[in-house]
Simulated scan of single mutants.
Amino acid sequence: MNAFITGAASGIGKATADALLKRGWSLALADIAVDDLYVVKEEYPDRVSVYVLDVTDESAFSSAVADFAAQHNGKLRLMFNCAGVLEVNRFTDISTRRHDQIIDINVKGVLHGCRSAYPFLRDTPGAQVINMSSASATYGIPEFAVYSASKFAVQGLTEALNIEWRKDGIHVGDIMPPFVKTPMLTSQEHGAAIIDALGVNLTAEDVAEAVMKQLSFKLTHRPVSLPFTLLFLFSQITPRPLTGLLIRLLSRH
């Protein structure tokens, strides 16, 4: 089994890599900063390849995936699009440049990953794409506006490709965790009322375990944690304004 993981140097990407390595997988670990990844490669020299990768660079992405697949007879069992960035603040207090960066990494990075991996996934029995989405794709979250929008895009792409690529034997799904204790969240300079209301109750390892479940029991959208799973199911069967009302109540300062 082999997998290509973006955003592998920290947080959910790192935790997922650790979980897969314990299960005997061979991995491509890709990130912009890779010093820590070479430590992993030293421990697993025959099962880990490291790539310095900016996911917004489609050409570099394609080259890295092709190089890794070539090491495995042109096969790729899993593409895990995990790289992402977040800025918590009021929409008008975040620069346009930062908004653009969030879209470029969170959306275009996933597009590039799917497109780069497709030829190799198509030739691999049981192949999967797992995209990192978020609970914020359930309903637009104040002070997460563009991040939330980016995850709605990931959700829509996931749904469309899961139908489109079914004939190729490729399953496309996403993981939807609420707030996770990772450097991406804990490094934020600004808080948000909804974080205070719901708390940060998940670890990167919790989300990695959800990825492990997704490998054997494939869903289009996999919510993480019982409370959010119930909220997600509620949002699917109730009028959308009710979900909006709940988000407004949770977002009160």
Rank of each mutant, 00 (worst) to 15 (best):
T124V: 04
D93N: 15
R77Y: 11
N131A: 07
D123T: 12
A145Q: 13
V88L: 03
G126V: 00
T92N: 14
I94E: 05
N89A: 13
K75I: 03
K75R: 12
I105C: 00
G109C: 05
A145K: 06
I103Q: 10
V107I: 14
A83R: 00
A135Y: 01
I141R: 01
D104L: 12
S134I: 04
I94H: 04
G84M: 07
D104R: 13
S95A: 10
M132Y: 02
Y147H: 06
A117G: 08
Y118R: 13
S95Q: 12
F91C: 12
R115I: 11
S133V: 07
S133Y: 00
V146C: 06
R98G: 05
D93W: 10
S116G: 12
E87G: 09
N89P: 10
V85W: 02
F80K: 01
V88A: 07
V88R: 03
F144H: 01
I94S: 02
T92Y: 15
E87D: 15
Q128N: 09
V110Y: 01
V146I: 12
T124S: 02
A145I: 14
T138D: 09
R97K: 15
N131R: 04
G140D: 02
P142E: 06
S95D: 13
I103E: 09
A83V: 06
S95M: 12
V85D: 02
L78F: 05
H99C: 08
V110W: 00
S136P: 04
P142T: 10
C114V: 07
D123L: 09
A135I: 08
S136K: 02
R97G: 12
Q101G: 11
V107Q: 09
P142K: 10
G140Q: 11
K75T: 09
Y118N: 11
S133T: 06
T124L: 05
E87H: 12
A127M: 02
S148M: 05
R90V: 08
H112V: 04
Q101R: 14
H112C: 05
T96N: 15
S136C: 14
D93M: 13
Q128M: 06
F91E: 07
T138Y: 06
Y139T: 13
H99G: 09
R77Q: 14
S134V: 07
A137E: 07
G140W: 06
A117W: 01
T92D: 15
A137N: 10
P142S: 11
G140S: 11
D93H: 12
V88K: 00
A135G: 14
L121K: 00
Y139G: 03
H112S: 05
G84A: 08
Y147W: 04
F91W: 14
L76Y: 02
R115D: 08
I103F: 09
P119F: 08
L111N: 04
T138V: 15
